[in-house]
């Protein structure tokens, strides 16, 4: 089964091409990570899939419908977006923030069903103890969980995460990705994330997409993709790749084109 098929996706800012002819398939209940250097198009790709940016090409859903032809509200029912790190500008409580995720499904009035769903999701992500706290008062790890909860409240088929581990310490990085992975496996939705850390990507993803200059360099499972050669080709970094707990992990040694000072 397939959640999303992306065909010939291109995006440019003015004359500058950011993404060029990307083709990608996101399977059922799969964690797929986009990796690549800064400026390779990871975040742009996430935003294009959610139509926050307007790309060219087709984003086909499993019934064959093209996401590009749907209204924003329809898209919101299919795809949940977890932004990089939001500092919520206006005052809202955690409860209201997650309730916002029900927006594509509800009218002006909040139905009991919506409240029930928010409560269930809060318990699932263990954020219920600060339900009525202000979002801005939470720690980075708590904020990340609340943002994931909001995206889940949309009851999406696909979760998009933009750098879910940035601004988090090691413990919270692991917790955030554990949460994503367990939800993907439990609820059979799929997750696509843009992520910098190759080792975390390798550990938590079913497949990786290596991006370079807006193009796909390689797609595959972490073990076959994370090789010395690939890392040199896309990052320009000399690295050693080892295996631990059946997953590859990368120890970067030196940058290939940096001059010693």
């Amino acid at each position: 089964m397939v959640k999303i098929t992306i065909k010939d996706l291109s995006f440019s800012y003015g004359s500058r091409k950011i993404l060029e002819n990307l083709n990608l398939v996101v399977g059922d209940s799969e964690v797929l990570s986009l990796v690549g250097p800064n400026g390779s198009g990871k975040t742009t790709m996430i935003k294009c899939i959610d139509r926050i940016l307007k790309p060219k090409g087709a984003i086909l859903l499993d019934g064959g419908r093209d996401l590009q032809s749907l209204s924003r509200q329809e898209v919101a029912k299919y795809i949940g977006y977890v932004p990089q790190s939001t500092t919520s500008v206006l005052t809202t409580t955690v409860f209201d923030t997650i309730l916002m995720g029900r927006k594509p499904h509800m009218g002006w009035r909040v139905a009991d069903e919506d409240i029930d769903k928010v409560v269930d999701i809060m318990k699932l992500l263990h954020v219920e103890e600060f339900a009525l706290k202000d979002f801005s008062e939470l720690s980075g790890g708590q904020k990340q969980r609340v943002l994931i909860a909001r995206a889940l409240a949309q009851e999406p088929e696909v979760l998009l995460l933009d750098e879910p581990t940035s601004n988090l310490d090691v413990k919270h990085q692991l917790e955030a990705l554990d949460t994503v992975r367990s939800i993907v496996k439990k609820t059979e939705i799929s997750a696509v994330m843009a992520i910098h850390d190759l080792n975390l990507a390798a550990r938590y993803s079913d497949s990786l997409v290596m991006l370079k200059n807006g193009m796909v360099h390689a797609i595959g499972d972490p073990s076959s993709l994370l090789t010395k050669e690939n890392i040199r080709a896309i990052f320009g970094v000399e690295a050693v790749v080892m295996t631990d707990l059946d997953r590859p992990y990368v120890v970067p040694l030196r940058s290939l084109n940096a001059e010693a000072v």
């Binding site: 924003r72 939001t86 919520s88």
Partner: peptide
């Protein structure tokens, strides 16, 4: 007031608002 939810969503940032279905 009819657009209350949309204005609320704008408060979370334009990108998030778009992802929640707001024009």
């Amino acid at each position: 007031m009819y657009f209350s939810w949309d204005i609320n969503a704008l408060g979370a940032g334009d990108e998030t608002a778009k992802s929640l279905g707001v024009n």
